[in-house]
Write a protein that binds this DNA or RNA. Structure first.
Lengths: 197, 197, 197, 197
DNA sequence: GATGAATGAGACTTCATTCAT
DNA sequence: AATGAATGAAGTCTCATTCAT
């Protein structure tokens, strides 16, 4: 019987998602046509609309995947059994490494968020907020226990760090002088140094 | 009908530029139609193309304006007669205040840069590079003279700070709890604290 | 409203080509809008661009059709088993009849050739050149064997005759006093008389 | 006081007409914008509309100029004091030379005629008809006096010759192997040979 | 499960012409 | 005599989506 996999072996929906991710990151959501996506995935338009309700859905799937991964990782680091300065450092460094390793996802996430419709936008914002708050809780924990300075509101500290994470997709190049881990160590170091009392 | 600026005394090119700036920031470059721009400016499409060669030109004008202002301000602060830590702090805080005061310009700048054609893109990148290097020179100066830690490469420090500046358009709201100056002081403070030896 | 061919059995691409041929001949390429073509064919613009890459493509299709037909007919007459003066006369007369019977194609061909893009232009010129050379070879054959005068270069003789063929679309009217065949006989006669030694 | 001549010395209307002639011949009437014409002439749009009522008027002026010149020359040759075969040959050769020397005018004339509005079109056709009839009268005169064959209707003979004249703008190149006079002699020769009894 | 022809709205841009100066 | 800002209609083309098969 007819299978949903082509020569490639990968199921069609995943092939479409991979093609869309790459193209959205390369040219942006609006500059990528459905035709280009299906051509890159080696299927036809009918197939895309069989699996996804709209072009918008593809974007939302990318977001959902990124959010799920990042939240899981943050939770794991934040719940670890270690001093708060260690847990914050690990979480701060990990989000950098993960972002670099999925730079396409990150480009899309930080550049195309305003393309979502109202209800999906609300949903994504809620998940982002949850992520932000978990991270902020770490900062506040350290501030309460005296290992971090209280000079700066915790909210602002979180935004300071995530600003640098967003910015990665602007300047990081895989063939640059620093490995993802080195960049992560430096950025986490900067954060921790700024928080020294 | 939807005229925001009526046929008042403002010259047409400036009315168009103002309308485009607001709309590009609100909906993004691709989601803003030329029709919407001319309606907001209260003129016809023909008038727009009388003054600007293309929609792309409007975007480039916004960039040029932002770049000019920011470079001038950075030069002034960097060339001041004060200790390097003071000059870096002032420059770091000023770019935050200026960015908040022109948040529309900033949104466009950091989100729509990839819409420029090749030659304009090259030009903008060159000016951005110049800005980056002037800022980096301040960091390096402090590192050489021993007032800043050399733990982190100066390039990375610059990107760390500018990440937070880019990020402002994502989270800053005029009616939030902090004034632009307060945000600027906090962010400059974080930078300087991170650079303590 | 203005449908000339209703949703009958003819395939859409052929309906579009027929409508374009008629309109290009009537008003010229530039004065014919895509909107007029699709209305005459009873389809929408999207359908046109589904089958043809551009308005220019439609023109090229008309050319390709004319060139193919004319070349086939010339080859048949030129390769026939008859004296050279008979073969030239037959070929010269046939191109007149065929041109009159497809006067729309001819008008377009001789008046709109300069609207083609560079690569298509090159292709059309190459095929025209092949046609010209086949015809010239007939003249030269007769000149070598002494049945035609060598007073005029063969190239010029060919252009002389084809000038009159191009010109047909300027003056020939279907309800005029001469049938296509009579015109053809006269023009072929003039050519052969001019070539008498 | 202000004169209507620029650095150039040539009056503005003539500069406009010369620029329009060149551009119409190069790109065709529809592909030439008023903006291009005024730029080529070194004036502004206001100036063009000061001297000419419309873009269409420019085209008509080109036609009028060509028609006047050709008619004058034909009349001179036809009324000369010489045998009819000499007068026809001279007229036939002269129109070739004159056409080659004004190939731009000819290209426009033979390719853009359908761009004229109804009333100007009627006017041009009337003058063309007068020209055609004067030429035909020469042929008929020779036929009546027995120096030309009566095998072909005189109308058709005229169209045969003028077909080759129209065609010149398609194939003649100034740097080709034949001078204008040589081409003219060959084409007149072909005509006269075709008319031999 | 998947096709691809067809839709129809809307995108950017060009252009001949007018008019106040 | 000449300017050039502004108009407004029309132009070509793109695209997400639908639907009969």
């Amino acid at each position: 019987m007819a299978r949903t996999t082509e020569p490639n072996g990968t199921p069609v929906p995943q092939r479409l998602l991979a093609a869309a991710t790459r193209l959205f990151a390369e040219r942006g959501y609006d500059r990528t046509s459905v035709q280009e996506i299906v051509e890159a995935a080696g299927v036809t338009k009918g197939a895309l609309y069989h699996y996804f309700g709209s072009k918008d859905d593809l974007l939302h799937e990318v977001y959902a995947r990124v959010l799920r991964v990042q939240q899981e990782r943050l939770d794991a680091f934040a719940d670890a059994d270690a001093p708060v300065e260690q847990r914050l450092r690990d979480a701060a460094a990990d989000v950098v490494v993960t972002t670099i390793e999925n730079l396409d996802d990150a480009s899309i996430f930080f550049r195309s968020m305003h393309h979502l419709g109202p209800e999906k936008d609300k949903q994504v914002r809620a998940e982002r907020r949850r992520y932000h708050e978990r991270f902020r809780a770490l900062v506040e924990e350290g501030q309460r226990s005296g290992v971090f300075s209280e000079a700066t509101p915790a909210d602002l500290v979180v935004d300071y760090h995530f600003g640098s994470v967003h910015h990665l997709s602007t300047w990081y190049r895989p063939n640059g002088p620093l490995t993802p881990q080195q960049v992560a160590d430096h950025l986490a170091d900067l954060l921790l140094r700024a928080l020294r009392p």
